[in-house]
Write a protein that binds this DNA or RNA. Structure first.
Lengths: 218, 218
DNA sequence: CATGGACTGGAACGTTGTTCCAACATGGAC
DNA sequence: GTCCATGTTGGAACAACGTTCCAGTCCATG
């Protein structure tokens, strides 16, 4: 009943996904084309399409691959467990910015369910009422995905231009020159932009939501 | 010194943006091509490129146009003001799902600054310490953008397939069939999926963050 | 050794964003 | 009234992309 053994040098979905991740990581989202893949794998597009339905499926597979490596649920105290998951996601997306873009493109894939599941356990252990668990998990996941998307977009802009601090400095200048009547808040924020830490700010948001969740516990 | 008067029938960036929004709303993101635009405006691509640098700028302009219409800051009580802004964003993205996708693609455009500004005012009035204002605004904006992105992606899936309830029902079935050991939380959630209200859940998330923010106020 | 299904490589197709340019319109200078 | 410089237009052309198609190659099995 087992499939007959394959060729020794056979291409496989795993090898294709692996090559795709390498291209995405080293050259960015726009560099992942079937032509680049055929070149790297020294094959033709037909061979790739034999293992993978289309580019969407390929991207979903790469995303799932990266997320699965990160989503390990520990048995830490619930708050810390959620922080660990969130930071794991943040770091994964920091290392592979294209994941952020992909997660907001095709939802309800395995990758997103993994995140939901990882967050759901600690929420239960925290004593959140069952009716509210879906809302709380959804808030956390949507916040994480929002940051993920922004980070992905930022990475696109920064690699395209110069280095990060110069980029932030330019942005701050630009904000500071906005109309004082119309954008007072943005101008105030601009001052602190260059030395602001994305990761720290991300965690502050998680803690904000966690504080809100705590208020729900009877 | 003023530019000499233009032709009476002149194309303009406004007319192009308007036509683009019409195409996006009625036929979806994938239908917005320069060829579709030239057909609708009865012109050539060169004429469009005279007014618009490229497709990215066109999309940024359409997004800014839609957001600007929504971002009116009232003088309501701060919590309600933030809820109003958030719901305005939600409804705008519900009506124009492509906006959600665009916001997570090209950040730091005018559209995002408008949202930051709209949220910043109420945060100040709420008495949030200045050091924490950036973090709070960022949490709210990122959450909103996360939901926006997911809604955009969902809209893509639902219009492609059947109606919404059937889609959610199918999704719930799929979730309920997941491995019981690996996905207990997702399976539990699946039961409530068909009758769940996106808008209500979105607002619940906003309230969660607002509750967390309240805890910061001295 | 022959067979047939698993698998491969590459040519080809249709569509996209973008560029380029010859032509047209218009209002001020003469 | 004529003419020209500038602003604007329409469409042909290009390169790159995702995808399809198919003739051919490989190899466990009969």
């Amino acid at each position: 009943m087992a499939t007959r053994s394959q060729r020794a040098d056979a291409l496989s979905k795993e090898r294709i996904v692996e090559a795709a991740i390498e291209i995405l990581d080293t050259e960015g989202e726009s560099a992942l084309t079937f032509r680049a893949l055929t070149a790297r794998l020294a094959t033709g597009s037909g061979a790739i399409y034999w293992h993978v339905a289309n580019k969407n499926e390929l991207l979903a597979a790469t995303t799932n691959d990266v997320i699965a490596r990160v989503m390990t649920v520990g048995d830490a105290e619930p708050h810390d467990a959620i922080r660990a998951i969130a930071l794991g996601m943040f770091d994964a997306i920091d290392a592979h910015p294209w994941v952020g873009a992909q997660l907001s493109r095709e939802p309800w894939q395995l990758a997103m369910l993994r995140i939901f599941e990882a967050v759901g356990g600690p929420l239960r252990r925290l004593g959140v009422p069952e009716r509210a668990q879906f809302n709380c998990a959804s808030a956390l996941v949507n916040y994480i995905l929002g940051v993920a998307g922004q980070n992905a977009a930022n990475a696109r802009l920064v690699t395209a231009g110069t280095d990060r601090t110069a980029f932030l400095g330019g942005l701050a200048d630009q904000w500071a020159r906005l109309d004082a009547e119309e954008y007072p808040f943005v101008r105030q924020i601009a001052a602190g932009l260059p030395e602001h830490d994305d990761r720290e700010q991300f965690l502050a948001g998680i803690d904000l939501i966690l504080a809100g969740i705590d208020a729900l516990i009877p």
